[in-house]
Design a protein around this nucleic acid. Structure first.
Length: 313
DNA sequence: AAGACGAAAGTGGTTGA
DNA sequence: TCAACAACTTTCGTCTT
């Protein structure tokens, strides 16, 4: 039977030019029906699955036939009525009209479900590359999205907002946090909406997401501000000490990160104005000042910082 | 003129009854 | 669902360089 497209957009056999292919599902191959040319193989993705990066939660999800690659909408495996080599011939001639109808319906059902999923996943793809996120985040979100679809959580919500919400949760969980702002801007979904969806999804999927740690923001923010590795290291060090004094909890992690960077930059002789940092990170100067004072105070480095500030201006 | 500071009022989100 | 609450923002006047 003619297929609209085999993998990678092949619609015609390059050998004989015919448009008839069949798939051998047990071998995972697609073969030209006329000349027997092997057009594609390994439909079944045998690469390592998501578990490889997800140690803690492995025990939670051990369903059989785990997705091989959750970032593809059909995971590389598609089952449809009407595709087998001899399938059609196995049907009695009198039943063939019915068989046609079945094929048609199967196609409609599969395609409408897939359309949703593949649309969502292409949106995800876009966001992931726009925000420069690692593959682990991509896969985790894809996995969770499917879970959300299965539980009917997407109904009544836009796919975009669900994807955005999951990104928000997963980036935080995997220590590459993005702020609500950043995700809102990239996805075009309002912050409010993302937040709402996030809370709902997190509850329904019983995700346990901890507040972001300030230090996981440091490298990214530092590079946005063009600060050196030395400043980064200093900032992270400051945060480590601050954490022991328990002055970081309950505060917005971005504000804490901003203040730590400010102090570190000053101490390392790469001073930035509070405004520069505030703009880059997305908090106000006031917040930086408040956090900055708390940090300097608790760490007993007020005088040192003050001296440096004067030196550098 | 630019940056830092901080007071005061306003905003949005969380929490607990 | 509502009110209380803490964190954060906005706005603005003041001080320093």
């Amino acid at each position: 039977m003619p297929l609209k497209s085999i993998s990678k957009g092949i619609t015609k056999c390059p050998e004989c030019g015919c448009k008839f292919f069949f798939e051998d599902e047990t071998r995972g191959e697609t073969i030209c029906g006329k000349c027997g040319l092997l057009l594609s193989e390994a439909h079944i993705d045998t690469s390592p699955d998501w578990r490889s990066f997800d140690d803690e939660q492995r025990s939670k999800r051990t369903r059989g036939g785990a997705p091989l690659t959750p970032t593809k909408h059909d995971k590389g495996i598609t089952t449809e009525i009407g595709r087998g080599k001899g399938e059609f011939l196995k049907v009695a001639p009198s039943k063939r009209p019915q068989y046609y109808r079945l094929m048609k319906w199967q196609k409609r059902l599969v395609e409408s479900k897939d359309r949703n999923l593949s649309f969502a996943l292409s949106e995800l793809q876009r966001l992931v590359s726009f925000l420069g996120l690692p593959k682990s985040v991509h896969e985790e979100v894809a996995k969770k999205y499917e879970e959300a679809v299965e539980k009917g959580l997407v109904r009544g919500r836009s796919m975009e907002s669900v994807i955005a919400a999951l990104l928000y949760a997963v980036t935080r969980d995997l220590d590459t946090p993005r702020t609500l702002e950043e995700i809102a801007e990239a996805s075009g979904v309002e912050k409010r909406e993302i937040g709402r969806t996030y809370r709902y999804i997190a509850r329904e999927l019983t995700l346990r997401i901890l507040p972001a740690k300030p230090d996981s923001y440091i490298p990214r923010f530092a590079s946005m501000l063009g600060l050196s590795d030395k400043v980064q290291a200093k900032a992270i060090n400051l945060l480590k000490h601050a954490k022991q004094k328990e002055i970081t909890s309950g505060k917005g992690p971005t504000g804490v990160a901003a203040a730590a960077l400010y102090i570190a930059a000053v101490l390392e002789g790469e001073k930035k104005t509070q405004r520069e940092i505030a703009d880059a990170i997305g908090v106000t100067e006031v917040t930086i000042r408040n956090r900055f004072k708390e940090l300097a105070n608790q760490l007993g480095i007020e005088e040192e910082v003050e001296r440096k500030v004067k030196e550098e201006s």
